[in-house]
Design a protein around this nucleic acid. Structure first.
Lengths: 198, 198, 198, 198
DNA sequence: CATGAATGAGCGTTCATTCAT
DNA sequence: CATGAATGAACGCTCATTCAT
């Protein structure tokens, strides 16, 4: 039990480290953030960080994974559910946008800073990222099969655009805590389904 | 003539410095880029950079301005022209997306790094950026008045979304030189007008 | 005991840093001295200095304080003692001149370089310096009241002159380790009391 | 005539350069002053300074010489005159103190910065400086022979002290343009002749 | 005589990282 | 598990100086 509680303690501290790193990376960027500031934010000395991360780059990887893990797994659920296209699209957007509120800026860090990871470290992420896009593409594919959307829709373009639009709004969500995510989700979904025109 | 050519020399070098800085900032981010690398890219010694920029931050400001000056002025022209909504929207998107090819990554830098400028330095940019969004909003306002789009469209949301979508694609344009901008412009415009649904 | 010795370790190193800085500032002036040379003199790497000083300017402040702290507190004792004027004057001069031997050139640095401190940092010093002069003035005031000196002596002038004379000789003391301070003290005191004339 | 006027022009500019350098050296010290600031103060470009000084060190030498040339030659006149001791002492102090007003801070620079000159460059100055002190010593020697002062006065000490006292006040004169030099001269002379005691 | 452009060395400072305690 | 002390490389920047024009 003592071992377990120690383990818990470690996990708690590690989580706290990830959140501190996420906040610093989000505010100053990966290169602009300092390990000293991350340590200060979580209330330990600079050297102690190295019990939780092997290096600064390692911290970035941890933050990125923290940022997309849930987000990617929720996508898997959405794609697997037997729902009409419109519901799936709404669920996707809702999940994506609200992730920006719930992951301590880690999703923003994933978007803005992941390219600074070395190729090897990024490999893990790439898989999750690609999976996300492919699942979204498959939703559009299915919609075409079900005649829910025009058959001339480019599914790759569509998925990329949905992701890009959500990320663009995500930046604004992080910066403006007043933004109403529910309303925003409605508007985005509506736009994607029907456009602005008459 | 000697005077003019001397003047040209300075202007040429300054432009070359801005482009070198844009490239380095785009690749490594503001904090990750080094003045040494910028100098090396333009073929001078590190110290010589300071003949053209008062500081690294000043270089970032110059890059950002370089990135949005034309882009903003083109928007002014588009908004002023007497054209139907659909043409204006297409022109906007076309201008926005092709800027990512013509400004040596400076527009990408403006989007990703401008928040690292101090408040005073950013003031110059803010005006141009706000103007851009407001002009775009006015195009949507006008479209409502002309009954070209539904009257329940939130023009602020619409403008922000167009900008966000273009910037998201801009990132991809910069990273992938093969991307067909003409085709992309069509698809984006089409989506915004009619959506994916039937 | 381990804790105390650790604390000692830091204090020892900090003192060593102050002395190294004093020596370099005295030899090359504040601007002419390099942090690299200071670090080398105390046997650490350049960057390690910043564990003991927040900045080079901070090091100058530390040196100045080190240079005048004892010197100012001794003045307080002298002024407080119930002794005849001549004894107080002698004590003052003796204390002032011998400080130049005991503070590792820090007093010289205080005199020659303190004006390079920013106004805020200099504030700490100003108080001590003013106190010193005022205490000395009060000794002259008292001497007038006790009729130990002519009543037309300008006490401000007198204090300033004593200080100036001692500092002038201090420069020579630092440069020439052979100078006999005891003899010098006698001569200065004698001059101030009786002048060169008959 | 054209040649002469050109020569004059050069001499004027050189003088202006010396004064500019004196002012910068006095304000920031030799190492703290920049050639750029000196050039700016005299209204030319940085590179143009090198028509008047071979190097920054050369500029310091020129300033030092400018600071003590007149001052030393005046001392020669004073020592040569057939006047009583008291008159000579007064003339010396008057000349010394008023030099601080008339040489654009160059005398202050001579005192505070001359040690940063390399040994060879300082040689010229040393001669003038030693001459000054020796002339002053000879005045005290003569005063002993004429029985104008006690025969136990140490003439070397006396000369050094007079110089030191004047330089100490000189610092204050430079910093405070309101100081009454005439009054100060009287007080210093009086002190040196009669002391503060009764 | 003066300039503007450039240099290359050096500066003060910060950084990610290590490791004995 | 955590610290405090130290490292050495890199950073942004300033400098005195040079030289073609």
């Amino acid at each position: 039990m003592s071992e377990e509680s120690q383990n818990n303690r470690y996990e708690q501290q590690k989580l706290s480290a990830v959140k501190a790193a996420a906040a610093e990376f989000a505010e100053h960027g990966y290169h602009g953030a300092s390990t000293k500031a991350i340590a200060a934010r979580m209330g330990v000395q600079q050297g102690s960080l190295y019990y939780y991360f092997k290096s600064k780059e390692d911290a970035l990887l941890a933050v990125c994974l923290f940022g997309i893990r849930d987000y990617a797994s929720r996508m898997r659920e959405i794609a697997a559910n037997a729902q009409p296209f419109e519901a799936k699209l709404l669920a996707t957007i809702s999940s994506h946008l609200s992730s920006y509120r719930s992951t301590n800026e880690a999703l923003k860090v994933y978007n803005a800073e992941r390219l600074y990871l070395s190729a090897e470290k990024r490999a893990n992420l790439k898989e999750l990222g690609s999976m996300y896009r492919e699942l979204l593409e498959s939703i559009f594919d299915e919609a075409i099969r079900d005649a829910a959307i025009h058959d001339n829709v480019d599914c790759h373009f569509a998925a990329q655009t949905v992701i890009g639009m959500c990320n663009a709004w995500g930046e604004l969500i992080v910066r403006d805590p007043e933004l109403d995510i529910f309303e925003l989700t409605q508007k985005c979904t509506n736009l994607l389904l029907r456009g602005f025109g008459k």
